[in-house]
Design a protein around this nucleic acid. Structure first.
Length: 359
DNA sequence: CAACAGGACCGTCAGGAAGT
DNA sequence: ACTTCCTGACGGTCCTGTTG
């Protein structure tokens, strides 16, 4: 794929993920609406997309008014119009959804709305996706734009039991300061750090960080177990000046967002490169306090580590998108094959009807 | 059972595109 | 001009299936 088509590819990909539907208006015009369905982020349960009407569909026409072949309007012999959608559900499960427009299942619709909101929220946490989704929103009337995440990063620092002012909390979805993401941190005697975050959305209730700093781990290493009760969890910590090694075995088997979604508890290792601070918490040095060449070198190393980690995450995300895109293409192939088959059948039927009876 | 091939996945680098 | 993000390319590791 050429570089110049990259954005277009992402945009198309998200369009497909958001399952653009086309609804015919009374005057015959066509209006786009975004009926969110599924993506790899939010895997809906199999069978959620029920098939309201399936019987004897003959494809009398197709065309969406724009290049969204994932949805095709199908005219039933009775005059009813139905949508044929290629739906990607859980990975490798592809279905063709034929939904009668006149018989919209309200419960399914509301479920879809909830799903769409959840999915949109999750997608919106990715800056690149947020931007692209906003672009799509501007294309599609009636779709609300996604708010920029200002509240998380700009809010006043709540009460901190332990202030870690320059530490950065990094997830696969972005980078936040410790202040914003961890409003209250308390260290218990057993080495457990309790992080309470009463107000923020997404992270609810109490979370626990367990640091095991002695004994079995490698010298100078601290194992941080982070048990998050939130739905999307936390992917990674980054403590500047330290090396973070993700030891989550679940994420070896499954994508990180999957592990987070299933509530698995990842294990993180924070390794201080040079200094051995207690509890493995490494404070970042502010640039203004740099004096010696050694500190400058450490700062350069820290920057490099940060850059590498960001790039690592970006590469993961890029690969995930690519896989999703391939799945979308495969799904489209399946949809088009079915459509093709139906058109051939319809052609045969019409041939039979139109051929002169030689009785 | 060891050797090998193939695929999947990952981390890193490099370079282009877009934003500041 | 600089920074940031994205992605192709490359090399490495791990796992699995096949073959002798």
């Amino acid at each position: 794929m050429s570089k110049c088509s990259r954005k277009k590819y992402i945009k198309t990909n998200i369009r497909q993920m958001t399952m653009e539907t086309v609804e015919p208006q009374q005057d015959g015009s066509v209006t786009d609406s975004v009926a969110e369905s599924d993506s790899a982020h939010m895997q809906t349960q199999a069978g959620q997309n029920s098939i309201p009407t399936l019987a004897q569909v003959s494809v009398a026409g197709s065309g969406t008014g724009r290049s969204s072949p994932a949805v095709t309007l199908v005219q039933l012999p009775s005059g009813q119009t139905v949508q044929v959608q290629g739906v990607i559900q859980t990975p490798q499960i592809q279905t063709i959804q034929v939904a009668t427009i006149a018989e919209t299942d309200e419960s399914a619709e509301s479920e879809g709305v909830i799903d769409s909101h959840k999915r949109r929220e999750i997608l919106s946490r990715r800056p690149s996706y947020r931007k692209i989704l906003n672009e799509l929103s501007s294309d599609v009337p009636g779709v609300p734009k996604i708010e920029e995440e200002k509240s998380e990063e700009e809010g006043p620092a709540p009460n901190l039991a332990m202030a870690v002012p320059t530490s950065i909390y990094q997830t696969s979805t972005g980078q936040y300061s410790m202040y914003a993401e961890f409003p209250s941190i308390a260290i218990a005697q057993g080495g457990t750090i309790q992080i309470s975050n009463p107000g923020s959305d997404g992270v609810q209730g109490l979370q626990a960080l367990t640091m095991t700093n002695s004994g079995a781990p490698p010298p100078g290493a601290t194992i941080v177990q982070y048990a998050a009760q939130s739905a999307d969890g936390t992917q990674q910590f980054f403590v500047p000046g330290s090396q973070v090694v993700v030891q989550d075995e679940e994420t070896e088997l499954a994508p990180s967002h999957m592990a987070a979604a299933t509530g698995d508890m990842p294990t993180y290792q924070i390794r201080a490169p040079t200094t051995a601070l207690p509890q493995g918490v490494v404070m970042a040095t502010s640039p203004g306090s740099l004096h010696s060449p050694q500190q400058l070198a450490e700062e350069a190393t820290r920057k490099r580590e940060l850059r590498l980690m960001k790039n690592r995450e970006a590469a993961k995300e890029c690969r995930r998108r690519k896989k999703e895109y391939v799945k979308c293409l495969e799904s489209r192939v399946a949809v088009l094959e079915v459509q093709n088959k139906k058109l051939i059948e319809e052609l045969e039927t019409l041939k039979d009807i139109c051929s002169p009876k030689t009785d």
